[in-house]
Design a protein around this nucleic acid. Structure first.
Length: 442
RNA sequence: GACCCUAUCGUCCAGUGGCCUAGGACACUCCCCUUUCACGGGAGUAACACGGGUUCGAAUCCCGUUAGGGUCGCCA
């Protein structure tokens, strides 16, 4: 445990949370939690042109959805704020004057540039190792601009100032910043401050190795939120992109990931994103989570879809028989609806395949009568009645099972039939079976 | 173009000089289980980029080539 460990996630509000950014946030968060340190969220909104409240909200929502709570940041003051760069003007001005007084700055066409000391700068990276950058040639490494003619600030400068002011101990960020690091080190030196430790994590690319852009499947965290994914599953998948517990396990409780996580064990090669595997893990989480958690996730989805369930309690038995069968929350309304409404749709293909068959009406009516006569509506009773009817009529079990399923739910896929009927109830089952034969004139 | 990072099955992750005729997972194919769809169980296809070294011995260390990615902004 080391409370002096302070890390930060510093996104700029571009209007969406990229999956790579989310993983950067995740690794920062994991490291902070592992060390017992602090996770700071800082919004880098120096580019006034494209800053909106909504764009910030998308980031906050995404992080919260993934369960990445910050100790300091927007809506959570921790004594190092404000946490929006747009509100830190005086701080930057102060540091600017300091650099200016030290003779490190000069003006060029109205913009302010930092005069590089022209040295070989060594980066000691926790993941990439020791790297020497030769900055002695102005031709290949021009002096960086830190302030525009209109007085606004450039990324490199404010990023460094904030890391100093916020007492950041470890900078964990994407590898796209590795080549920027020597510049930042020059700034720390000129300001007379000790730089933080650096850890550059590899990038996430598309499965084919191309750069992942906003439009690509799985690129935006919003697409998981809206796409029926379970947050803990997505978080787990992201943990395994560039890191692993080294023992071939892939589904890991977050608490265990926290205790095992370490920067030294992070991979050095770029990861190619595989949505199929994320989807598989989502199904694993769904199947194995508690019924209460499942209900918690299903309720908003059902409400949004307008499925008229009576109460959360009435949902429980229904959800318990579908939980292990679905792989994505978006499937839930379709699997649940027919339990709560008589106006379910009949899938035309299913009707054609199982109802529009010789003697299907006879079978359904016979079974409905048998069901009606049952005194106890339990799993074994239902199963026995169906098998008995099948044998009396001279049909195979499946010849009764399939039409019955379509009759009471409108679909050819669903939970185990006996469980489904038990939950539906005796009366509804019988009514629906008879109604179906009339509806299709069987 | 210059500089930097990387290089094991299609993909993710193991492997840090001998235990590797390279292991686990996703995807794919086949089989079993089965009232549907899934789950589960079993089997299979499939990789150390290439070339030089070092060493008794290399996926593991070194060099080069090639390939991929990144940075070189008055974007962040």
């Amino acid at each position: 445990m080391n409370p002096d460990v302070r890390v930060r996630f510093a996104p700029s509000p571009t209007g969406y949370l990229h999956v790579g950014g989310a993983r950067t946030a995740l690794f920062n968060w994991l490291y902070a939690r592992h060390c017992g340190g602090s996770f700071v969220l800082r919004i880098e909104d120096t580019d006034k042109a494209r800053n909106t409240q909504e764009a910030v909200q998308v980031i906050l929502d995404g992080l919260r959805w993934l369960g990445l709570d910050w100790d300091e940041g927007p809506e959570k003051d921790g004594g190092h704020g404000p946490y929006f760069q747009s509100q830190r003007e005086e701080i930057y001005e102060r540091y600017f004057q300091h650099l200016h007084a030290g003779g490190h700055l000069y003006q060029d066409n109205g913009a302010w540039r930092f005069r590089s000391p022209r040295e070989i700068v060594t980066v000691e990276d926790l993941i990439c190792g020791r790297i020497d950058f030769d900055l002695t040639n102005p031709g290949t490494h021009p002096d960086m601009t830190i302030r525009r003619p209109d007085g606004s600030w450039i990324f490199h400068f404010v990023n460094v100032v904030d890391d100093i002011e916020m007492k950041i101990s470890h900078v964990i960020r994407g590898e796209d910043h590795l080549s920027n690091t020597p510049k930042h080190l020059e700034l720390f030196k000129a300001l007379g401050k000790t730089p933080p430790r650096y850890a550059h994590i590899p990038l996430i690319l598309n499965k084919d190795g191309s750069k992942m852009s906003k439009r690509d499947a799985g690129a935006s965290i919003t697409s998981y939120i809206d796409g029926g994914y379970v947050p803990e599953a997505v978080r787990n998948y992201l943990c395994m992109l560039g890191w692993s517990p080294k023992d071939n396990r892939e589904k890991l409780e977050i608490s265990e990931t926290i205790s095992l996580f370490d920067l030294e064990k992070v991979n050095r090669r770029n990861a190619h994103f595989d949505l199929d595997k994320c989807f598989w893990l989502n199904g694993q989480y769904l199947a194995q989570m508690s019924l209460d958690r499942f209900r918690e996730l299903c309720v908003p989805v059902l409400n949004k879809a307008g499925v008229p369930f009576e109460s959360e309690a009435s949902l429980q038995p229904v959800l318990s028989i579908i939980k292990e069968k679905i792989k994505n929350l978006t499937e839930v309304p379709l699997w649940v609806a027919s339990f709560f409404t008589d106006h379910y749709e009949y899938d035309s293909e299913a009707v054609q395949k199982t109802l529009r068959q010789p003697k299907s009406g006879e079978r359904l009516l016979a079974l409905a009568s048998e069901f009606e006569s049952l005194h106890a509506w339990t799993l074994p009773e239902i199963e026995a009645a169906l098998k008995k009817t099948a044998s009396v009529l001279g049909f195979k079990t499946g010849d009764l099972v399939h039409p019955t399923r379509v009759a009471v739910s409108g679909r050819s896929v669903g939970p185990s039939l006996y469980h489904m009927l038990e939950v539906l109830g005796q009366k509804k089952t019988v009514t629906r079976m008879r109604r179906t034969t009339e509806l299709f004139s069987l």
